[in-house]
Design a protein around this nucleic acid. Sequence first.
DNA 1: CAGTATCCCTGTGGATACTG
DNA 2: CAGTATCCACAGGGATACTG
Lengths: 115, 115
Amino acid sequence: MARGKKTEIDKSDIKALQDTIFVVGGKWKLPIIYSICNGNKRFRDIERSIPGITTRMLSRNLKELEDNKLITRKVYTDLPVIVEYEFTEYAKEYGALIKQMIEWGKKHKKILVQN
Amino acid sequence: MARGKKTEIDKSDIKALQDTIFVVGGKWKLPIIYSICNGNKRFRDIERSIPGITTRMLSRNLKELEDNKLITRKVYTDLPVIVEYEFTEYAKEYGALIKQMIEWGKKHKKILVQN
DNA sequence: CAGTATCCCTGTGGATACTG
DNA sequence: CAGTATCCACAGGGATACTG
């Protein structure tokens, strides 16, 4: 990012970047995305697929992902309660970005190990 | 991410993703990147360009960015001490990803505001 | 100038129990 | 089944003072 080479980032960019990070930030967001991505739809299924997560954390994070329109929550019956979580169409746009983050993360690890 | 549509993510991907997030995570990493990106090289300059940051946080975060090979730290003289921080070539690869995160963040905000 | 050292506060996350 | 509620631990970050 040399001077004059125009790689300027402005304040609103920083804000946007922080928003992006926030959406997948924290300890559990990614594992949850991973779980749903692999076909788990119900609370218990997602919970069991993620070692170490508590119901509290899962509940809270699902709600945040829902607030961010990345997943939908649908209640099907009420006794017993059956709920299914699914990715929104919108989330799929995010998918491409996630893949790039994965790629970068992998390259990055290699570079760190080298030296 | 419909079933059978092969958008599978595996565990190592999650790890990689968390690494990527971690590199720019926290409250100050992005503002610091922004500052250096805009030409600031010295500790005091960076510090003054970021309202609210403390020397402790700046010091700690610069070290982490250095550990992650995104910036270099060069000492030029020792009385008074003059140090310059600069992006590595490697960091520029990261730049493209950062831009995409910015784009996504901006779109995301619009979508959230709509509904 | 370019940082450390200390102390403290808050927010994120963990453990456990309970409910519609 | 799908969550809340409550209480607790710890790490990230803030304020302030000091140093090579």
